[in-house]
Computed example of a mutant assay.
Amino acid sequence: MKIIIAAGTGFLGENLKNYFLEKGNKVYILTRNPKRKNEIYWDAKNPGEWGNILENADVLINLTGKSVDCRYTDINKKEIYTSRIESTKVLQQAIDTCSNKPKVWLNASSATIYVHSEKHLNTEENGIIGDDFSMNICKSWEKEFFKIENNDIRKVALRTSIVLGKNGGAFPKLCQVTKLGLGGKQGKGNQNVSWIHIDDFCRAVEWIIENENISGSINITAPNPLTNEELMKKLRAGFRIPFGMNAPVWQLEIASIFLKTETELLLKSRNVYPELLMKSGFIFSYPDIDSALGDLI
């Protein structure tokens, strides 16, 4: 296949690129800082020559968007929003000029689209979508993505949970905190953590590409979320660290200022289930946290 990954130089993009290259596919990366032969410049805002690479592509994967791991200042909020909406909009414009359009377009979204939920398990069908900054970003993102229908292009929004891998994302930070003896529960510890192993993330993306019946919004998460307290306990056991200091909310609020992040990333309860993936027959290599940590640690 000919696969285009927009913003493919980050944690998820690099892993997807390597995964598909190892299977003999041609992978091209759209990036602001091209350094390799298969990387093409784009600014994620304006049409340009980069649009030519979309001709005769089998798959387009768009991962563009400013990281939410920052303080939610007005400037950062605006950039979080515009980076997602503008990139999706300009990709649609480029596709509309193609003679031979990509067959499948996968656009990033987030499991954060669902409300804080400690009891209710959010599937694609019964998930409760709320109204705050983060959820509204996701709603606007998906609305822009699905706004224009192309009959010959299958569109899928990836509502991805926390992706666990050794070479980026949240997992190395969690490991560092645990090894320093700070791996206790954060806040009350009863907030749910929805997660997926990086290998299963890549396999799920491939599964969606290959299964023509899958379209619309889909949860990309392992089928067994667990509480923050349980996750930290299993991390401590994995590293054989006998203790971990708990971090009450007030401490996290202070720490988040110095770390230039938001407590929502730790304290929101993401309780999400991949119903559509499961019904389609996808089999997880790492369905529970024990198998995932057994591989990663």
Rank of each mutant, 00 (worst) to 15 (best):
F133I: 02
A108H: 04
R36M: 14
I257H: 11
S215F: 13
Y41P: 12
E14A: 11
G216Y: 12
D290P: 00
N151H: 13
P287Q: 09
I4N: 00
V104I: 15
F133T: 02
I4P: 00
G281W: 05
G294N: 13
L174T: 02
F11M: 07
E275I: 09
G24T: 05
P225C: 00
G216T: 07
K45I: 10
D74T: 14
L30K: 06
F146K: 03
K119R: 12
I128W: 13
V156S: 01
G168C: 09
R236Y: 02
E79G: 04
N192F: 15
S83Y: 02
S83C: 03
I148L: 14
S110M: 07
K143D: 15
G127H: 13
E230L: 02
D69V: 12
V104R: 09
N246K: 14
D295H: 15
P34F: 06
N213C: 12
T112Q: 13
N151S: 10
E118A: 13
L265K: 12
K23F: 09
N76P: 00
F145R: 03
E149V: 12
E124F: 02
S110G: 11
E212S: 15
I153H: 03
M278E: 12
I153R: 04
G238Y: 08
L293H: 01
K119G: 07
S161R: 03
G187M: 05
T123C: 09
Y273R: 02
I218A: 01
L21T: 10
I5L: 08
L91Y: 04
Q186M: 14
P102G: 03
N150Q: 12
L276F: 11
I153D: 03
R71Y: 13
V163G: 01
S280W: 09
D199N: 13
N100W: 00
E142M: 00
L91P: 00
E264I: 08
F239V: 01
M135V: 01
E262V: 10
L12W: 08
V59H: 03
R236K: 08
E39V: 10
S215R: 11
S140G: 10
L180Q: 13
E142S: 05
S83E: 06
G184Y: 07
E55F: 01
N25E: 13
A111M: 09
W50H: 05
A6N: 02
G184K: 05
K119A: 13
